[in-house]
Amino acid sequence: MTERDAEATAPCTDAARARLVTAYEACELADLARTAVPIGEHELNPDGTPRAPGAVLADAARVLAAAQRFLEAAVVFERVGGADWQLVGDVLDVSPRTARVRFAMSEAAFREELLPSEGTGSGGAAGEASSLRAHMVREPLETALDLDDWVLRHEDGDSDLGTAPVSGGLVQRDPRRRTGKPS
Protein backbone atom coordinates (compact mmCIF):
# COMPACT_ATOMS: atom_id res chain seq x y z
CA MET A 1 0.00 0.00 0.00
CA THR A 2 1.43 3.38 -0.99
CA GLU A 3 1.47 6.33 1.39
CA ARG A 4 -1.22 7.96 -0.75
CA ASP A 5 -3.42 4.85 -0.43
CA ALA A 6 -2.92 4.92 3.34
CA GLU A 7 -3.97 8.56 3.43
CA ALA A 8 -7.07 7.81 1.37
CA THR A 9 -8.17 5.05 3.75
CA ALA A 10 -7.06 6.70 7.01
CA PRO A 11 -9.97 7.33 9.32
CA CYS A 12 -11.16 10.90 9.62
CA THR A 13 -10.43 12.89 12.73
CA ASP A 14 -13.13 13.03 15.37
CA ALA A 15 -13.74 16.70 14.54
CA ALA A 16 -14.11 15.87 10.82
CA ARG A 17 -16.62 13.17 11.71
CA ALA A 18 -18.54 15.62 13.88
CA ARG A 19 -18.53 18.15 11.03
CA LEU A 20 -19.83 15.45 8.70
CA VAL A 21 -22.76 14.75 11.04
CA THR A 22 -23.41 18.51 11.08
CA ALA A 23 -23.41 18.55 7.27
CA TYR A 24 -25.83 15.63 7.20
CA GLU A 25 -28.20 17.36 9.62
CA ALA A 26 -28.03 20.54 7.50
CA CYS A 27 -28.87 18.47 4.42
CA GLU A 28 -31.87 16.91 6.17
CA LEU A 29 -33.04 20.34 7.38
CA ALA A 30 -32.71 21.81 3.89
CA ASP A 31 -34.66 18.96 2.32
CA LEU A 32 -37.46 19.24 4.88
CA ALA A 33 -37.68 23.01 4.50
CA ARG A 34 -37.59 22.76 0.70
CA THR A 35 -40.60 20.40 0.64
CA ALA A 36 -42.63 23.02 2.55
CA VAL A 37 -42.24 25.64 -0.20
CA PRO A 38 -44.50 24.35 -3.02
CA ILE A 39 -48.24 24.70 -2.59
CA GLY A 40 -49.92 21.62 -3.96
CA GLU A 41 -52.64 22.04 -6.56
CA HIS A 42 -55.24 20.43 -4.27
CA GLU A 43 -53.81 21.63 -0.95
CA LEU A 44 -56.24 24.51 -0.48
CA ASN A 45 -60.01 24.73 -0.50
CA PRO A 46 -61.57 27.30 -2.87
CA ASP A 47 -61.73 29.78 0.06
CA GLY A 48 -57.98 29.38 0.72
CA THR A 49 -58.32 27.27 3.86
CA PRO A 50 -56.34 24.03 4.18
CA ARG A 51 -57.90 20.79 2.94
CA ALA A 52 -55.83 18.85 5.46
CA PRO A 53 -55.84 20.89 8.69
CA GLY A 54 -52.62 20.49 10.62
CA ALA A 55 -50.53 19.27 7.67
CA VAL A 56 -48.48 22.46 7.28
CA LEU A 57 -48.10 22.70 11.05
CA ALA A 58 -46.80 19.12 11.13
CA ASP A 59 -44.30 20.00 8.37
CA ALA A 60 -43.15 23.02 10.38
CA ALA A 61 -42.72 20.86 13.49
CA ARG A 62 -40.53 18.44 11.49
CA VAL A 63 -38.41 21.36 10.24
CA LEU A 64 -38.06 22.68 13.78
CA ALA A 65 -36.98 19.25 15.06
CA ALA A 66 -34.43 19.01 12.22
CA ALA A 67 -33.16 22.49 13.09
CA GLN A 68 -32.69 21.34 16.70
CA ARG A 69 -30.68 18.30 15.50
CA PHE A 70 -28.57 20.62 13.32
CA LEU A 71 -27.89 22.92 16.29
CA GLU A 72 -26.96 19.96 18.51
CA ALA A 73 -24.61 18.62 15.83
CA ALA A 74 -23.01 22.07 15.45
CA VAL A 75 -22.42 22.30 19.21
CA VAL A 76 -20.88 18.82 19.24
CA PHE A 77 -18.62 19.77 16.33
CA GLU A 78 -17.45 22.90 18.14
CA ARG A 79 -16.88 20.98 21.39
CA VAL A 80 -14.95 18.16 19.68
CA GLY A 81 -12.93 20.89 17.96
CA GLY A 82 -11.93 22.33 21.33
CA ALA A 83 -14.56 24.95 22.14
CA ASP A 84 -15.36 25.32 25.82
CA TRP A 85 -18.84 25.75 27.27
CA GLN A 86 -18.19 29.49 27.68
CA LEU A 87 -17.86 29.92 23.90
CA VAL A 88 -20.93 27.78 23.21
CA GLY A 89 -22.93 29.76 25.76
CA ASP A 90 -21.72 33.08 24.39
CA VAL A 91 -22.70 32.19 20.81
CA LEU A 92 -26.12 30.93 21.92
CA ASP A 93 -26.59 33.82 24.38
CA VAL A 94 -26.97 31.52 27.38
CA SER A 95 -24.77 30.80 30.37
CA PRO A 96 -22.02 28.19 30.01
CA ARG A 97 -23.87 26.04 32.55
CA THR A 98 -27.11 26.22 30.55
CA ALA A 99 -25.22 25.29 27.37
CA ARG A 100 -23.59 22.32 29.12
CA VAL A 101 -26.88 21.10 30.58
CA ARG A 102 -28.59 21.43 27.20
CA PHE A 103 -25.93 19.81 25.00
CA ALA A 104 -23.65 17.60 27.13
CA MET A 105 -25.74 14.49 26.44
CA SER A 106 -25.50 15.08 22.66
CA GLU A 107 -21.72 15.36 22.96
CA ALA A 108 -21.55 12.21 25.11
CA ALA A 109 -23.69 10.30 22.59
CA PHE A 110 -21.40 11.35 19.74
CA ARG A 111 -18.28 10.33 21.66
CA GLU A 112 -19.93 6.97 22.40
CA GLU A 113 -20.60 6.51 18.67
CA LEU A 114 -16.85 6.82 18.11
CA LEU A 115 -16.27 3.68 20.17
CA PRO A 116 -16.11 0.29 18.45
CA SER A 117 -19.56 -1.27 18.03
CA GLU A 118 -20.64 -3.93 20.50
CA GLY A 119 -23.32 -5.17 18.13
CA THR A 120 -26.14 -4.00 20.37
CA GLY A 121 -28.81 -1.88 18.82
CA SER A 122 -31.99 -0.33 20.02
CA GLY A 123 -35.20 -0.60 18.12
CA GLY A 124 -37.67 1.99 16.97
CA ALA A 125 -37.18 5.38 15.32
CA ALA A 126 -34.72 6.59 17.96
CA GLY A 127 -32.66 3.44 17.48
CA GLU A 128 -32.73 3.89 13.71
CA ALA A 129 -31.57 7.52 14.00
CA SER A 130 -28.81 6.50 16.40
CA SER A 131 -27.81 3.67 14.08
CA LEU A 132 -27.63 6.06 11.13
CA ARG A 133 -25.50 8.54 13.06
CA ALA A 134 -23.23 5.73 14.25
CA HIS A 135 -22.86 4.61 10.63
CA MET A 136 -21.97 8.16 9.58
CA VAL A 137 -19.36 8.35 12.33
CA ARG A 138 -17.86 4.94 11.52
CA GLU A 139 -18.07 5.23 7.70
CA PRO A 140 -17.44 8.92 7.08
CA LEU A 141 -16.18 8.61 3.51
CA GLU A 142 -19.35 6.85 2.33
CA THR A 143 -21.49 9.52 3.96
CA ALA A 144 -19.31 12.31 2.59
CA LEU A 145 -19.60 10.96 -0.95
CA ASP A 146 -23.39 10.85 -0.61
CA LEU A 147 -23.34 14.46 0.60
CA ASP A 148 -21.03 15.41 -2.31
CA ASP A 149 -23.74 14.14 -4.65
CA TRP A 150 -26.45 16.03 -2.76
CA VAL A 151 -24.52 19.32 -2.86
CA LEU A 152 -23.75 18.97 -6.56
CA ARG A 153 -27.41 18.18 -7.37
CA HIS A 154 -28.51 21.33 -5.53
CA GLU A 155 -25.75 23.65 -6.74
CA ASP A 156 -27.04 26.89 -8.20
CA GLY A 157 -24.02 27.30 -10.44
CA ASP A 158 -22.92 30.53 -8.77
CA SER A 159 -19.99 28.97 -6.95
CA ASP A 160 -17.16 26.66 -7.86
CA LEU A 161 -17.45 23.89 -5.30
CA GLY A 162 -15.39 21.38 -7.25
CA THR A 163 -16.28 17.71 -7.52
CA ALA A 164 -15.85 16.91 -3.82
CA PRO A 165 -17.56 19.75 -1.91
CA VAL A 166 -17.92 17.69 1.27
CA SER A 167 -15.42 14.84 1.07
CA GLY A 168 -12.67 17.15 -0.15
CA GLY A 169 -12.72 19.08 3.12
CA LEU A 170 -12.55 16.15 5.51
CA VAL A 171 -9.41 16.02 7.62
CA GLN A 172 -7.96 12.59 8.13
CA ARG A 173 -5.86 11.29 10.97
CA ASP A 174 -2.20 10.83 10.25
CA PRO A 175 -1.98 7.05 9.64
CA ARG A 176 1.48 7.02 11.21
CA ARG A 177 0.00 8.14 14.52
CA ARG A 178 -2.47 5.26 14.59
CA THR A 179 0.28 2.73 14.09
CA GLY A 180 2.60 4.32 16.60
CA LYS A 181 5.09 5.55 14.01
CA PRO A 182 6.59 8.94 14.79
CA SER A 183 5.15 11.81 12.78
Rank of each mutant, 00 (worst) to 15 (best):
P165N: 09
D93C: 09
E72M: 00
L87D: 05
A65H: 00
G124F: 07
P46V: 09
R62I: 00
A60C: 04
L29R: 03
G48M: 02
A52W: 14
L57Y: 10
C27M: 08
L147H: 09
E142K: 13
A30E: 04
Q86Y: 11
L92D: 04
E7S: 11
E7W: 09
L20I: 05
A18K: 12
D59H: 08
N45F: 06
T179C: 03
A16H: 03
E25D: 06
Q172N: 02
E7V: 04
A104H: 15
L152Q: 08
L57F: 09
A108E: 13
K181R: 06
R173Q: 14
V91F: 05
W150Q: 10
L32G: 02
E43C: 03
D14R: 10
L132S: 11
V151R: 06
V151Y: 11
F110H: 02
Y24K: 01
A58G: 05
A104F: 07
E113T: 09
P46R: 09
G168Q: 13
L44P: 00
D158I: 10
R176M: 02
V171F: 00
D146Y: 09
G40N: 05
N45S: 14
A6Q: 12
G40Y: 12
G121Q: 08
S117T: 09
A66L: 02
A129L: 14
H42Y: 14
P46K: 06
A108R: 09
N45Q: 10
G82C: 07
R177V: 12
D158E: 11
P53S: 12
G82Y: 10
S95W: 12
R69S: 15
D31L: 11
V56E: 04
S130I: 02
A8K: 13
G157R: 12
W150M: 02
V166F: 05
E113K: 14
P116E: 03
E142A: 15
V37P: 00
E43S: 15
E113G: 08
P50V: 14
R133H: 15
E155S: 15
A55P: 00
F70K: 06
A83N: 15
A58Y: 00
T22F: 05
A8L: 14
L71K: 00
E78Q: 14
A66Q: 02
G157N: 15
R176E: 11
E142T: 08
E118K: 09
P96L: 11
V101H: 12
E128R: 13
A6Y: 04
E107A: 11
G127I: 02
V88F: 10
E155Q: 06
V75C: 04
A65E: 14
V21F: 11
R97V: 06
P165W: 02
A36R: 03
P96S: 01
R173Y: 01
D174T: 04
A52E: 15
V21Q: 05
W150L: 08
R69W: 01
P140R: 10
R69Q: 02
P53T: 04
T49P: 03
A66F: 07
S167V: 06
R34D: 07
R100Y: 13
V75E: 01
I39K: 09
D31Q: 07
E142L: 10
V88N: 02
A61E: 08
L152R: 13
T49C: 15
W85T: 13
S183Q: 12
T9V: 07
A129K: 10
E25H: 11
G180C: 01
S117I: 03
E113I: 03
G157H: 08
S117V: 12
M1V: 07
E155L: 13
G119S: 11
E43M: 12
L71S: 01
D93G: 06
D90P: 05
A73R: 02
E28T: 13
